[in-house]
Design a protein around this nucleic acid. Structure first.
Length: 496
RNA sequence: GGGGCGUUAGCUCAGUCGGUAGAGCAGUUGGCUUUUAACCAAUUGGUCGUGCGUUCGAGUCGCACACGCCCCA
């Protein structure tokens, strides 16, 4: 009860009074208004016509939108991402209607019918012959010039951010366009979109800490998925040779400018392909998205310039460390001891229980990754950190795997899939051993997945692309929260 | 987890050396009525994030906490 008005103020009270007066006179929230036109289309159709031409054509239009500006007899409504000026002089209406116009507030949603014309200053305008208040807005909008700039409020009240900040609307429209384009792209390559469980009994497909939940009827703990990988590969076993899933993953980790506990991942699997094929596909996909979104293969992100028409660099993990850490020869990578010594010399912290490959990747993560600005495929990942990837035929220490780094951030991770069920069982055992020794991110043993592999999975390559980070890249957004409609926030402290 | 910065009117922000809280926008009233961040006149609006402390006196100084942003791990 007291909660209802904890943030009430005079401005809201005045608007509530206006609403009460409306309720006494008519239906306060009418829903039969038929919006026949849009500001965007009207502008596009008539903007180039002269004042005289418009007068002669006497074009009628019926519009609706939110009032975002009031200038004397002129009202600007926002309708989708476009705006239209309305001429609605209260002197040309009488009685209750004139009073209604006077009581309009910024934020109200109105429907208007009238004739299009151009003002003395040449602005395309709708002269209201009739109008109707469709929704009374009870809360004042943010500053009409500066919008809503407080980042916390923009995230917590995204609906307000979207009303007043065009840039924010553009980001989410671009996000939607990217999602649509990705679906079209994979469908054009004969991939099938599928949906696999988000609630899993055995969480798998990535080394990450899962969220735990509980199914009451089954009295069973379940996990929100950290990746769809193992289910998608079961589908490849089943004969769906090209599948993709574009949906949410959940990882019980900290929040940062590039991490949200739930995030969107594209995963796709292609039978009879190798990881090299997916690197080629990824380059092509990124180039096409750039053109789809910005009309050019070139783009600028946080001050860096990228041209996705250029082939991406391809570099092994160890070569990248050699380049960025002044390591002279490969002997530094030869044994766990030499890699540990290298880590120490670079001031990279690690745990002695870690296998060689994990220490190696810690060096990469801390000393190399954020220095890789231009698009780079890093290859030859150590086997210990790649429990689902195919072992390289020449060097059993590494896998046929790559990650794509752009602007110092991991955007994609792909590999030729491990389809040897006995090798997979061994890898799971090693993961369980790591879990037992305290690694909360290590994988569980998934017996059914091994059984699936025992039925036989064709040679396959698969990849995951982090969609939020990809959208950040293509919308020049510094924080993942800027590309998530409702990013995770701590609850606000409740007063009282 | 550690460090830095921030939190003042509905929004955007000032606030000096510790001495009764300021502006623009929005709102209210009136005027104007083809304006363009419309304009003119008058005017309302504050638990200064929360709590404790120092002080005759705290938006301002100290401590703790909450939330947010940035950097580091």
């Amino acid at each position: 009860m007291t909660e209802d008005n904890h943030d009430e103020n005079k401005l809201i009270a005045q608007r509530r009074e206006k609403l009460t007066a409306i309720r006494e006179q008519r239906v306060a929230f009418p829903n039969g208004f038929v919006k026949e036109h849009s500001s965007a289309v009207l502008t596009q159709q008539h903007e180039s016509k002269t004042k005289e031409e418009l007068e002669e054509l006497a074009i009628n239009a019926t519009l609706a939108g939110r009032i975002i500006r009031m200038r004397g007899p002129f009202i600007v409504i926002q309708d989708g991402n476009a705006q239209m000026q309305i001429y609605i002089n209260n002197k040309s209406f009488t009685g209750e209607q004139a009073e209604q116009i006077k009581s309009f507030d910024l934020g109200d949603i109105i429907g208007v019918h009238g004739e299009m014309f151009k003002t003395g200053k040449g602005e395309l305008t709708l002269r209201a012959a009739s109008f109707e208040l469709l929704t009374k807005s009870l809360r004042p909008l943010p500053d009409k010039h500066k919008g809503l700039t407080d980042t916390e409020m923009r995230y917590r009240q995204r609906y307000v951010d979207l009303i007043v900040n065009e840039q924010s609307r553009n980001i989410f429209q671009t996000r939607s366009r990217i999602m649509r384009f990705i679906r079209q792209y994979f469908e054009s390559l004969d991939f099938m979109e599928v949906e696999t469980p988000m609630m899993q009994v055995i969480p798998g497909g990535a080394t990450a800490r899962p969220f735990i939940t509980h199914h009451n009827a089954l009295d069973q703990d379940m996990y929100l998925r950290v990746a769809p990988e193992l289910f998608l590969k079961r589908l490849v076993v089943g004969g769906f040779d090209r599948v993709f899933e574009l949906n949410r993953n959940f990882r019980n980790e900290g929040l940062s400018t590039r991490h949200n506990p739930e995030f969107t991942m594209l995963e796709f699997y292609q039978a009879y392909a190798r990881y090299q094929d997916l690197m080629d596909l990824t380059e092509d996909l990124f180039r096409r998205i750039a053109i789809e979104v910005g009309g050019s293969s070139k783009l600028s992100y946080q001050g860096s310039e990228y041209d996705f028409a250029q082939p991406f660099a391809r570099l092994s993990v160890t070569d990248s460390i050699k380049q960025h850490c002044a390591v002279e020869d490969d002997s530094a990578f030869a044994s766990k001891e030499s890699v540990a010594a290298l880590a120490n010399s670079l001031d990279v912290h690690f745990d002695d229980s870690w296998p060689r490959g994990k220490i190696l990747m810690e060096i990469f993560d801390q000393k190399v990754e954020d220095k890789l600005d231009q698009p780079t495929f890093i290859t030859e990942y150590p086997i210990e950190v790649s429990p689902l990837a195919r072992r390289n035929e020449e060097n059993p220490e590494i896998t046929d795997r790559f990650e794509l780094i752009i602007g110092g951030r991991e955007l994609a991770n792909g590999f030729s899939e491990l389809n040897d069920p006995e090798d997979q069982a061994e890898r799971f055992k090693e993961q369980v051993a790591q879990k037992d020794s305290g690694d909360s991110e290590a994988m569980h043993f998934d017996h059914d997945y091994v059984t699936a592999l025992e039925y036989g999975m064709p040679p396959t390559a698969g990849e995951g692309i982090g969609i939020d980070r990809l959208v950040m890249l293509f919308t020049d957004s510094a924080s993942i929260k800027d590309v998530l409609l409702f990013p995770h926030m701590r609850p606000q402290q409740d007063q009282g």
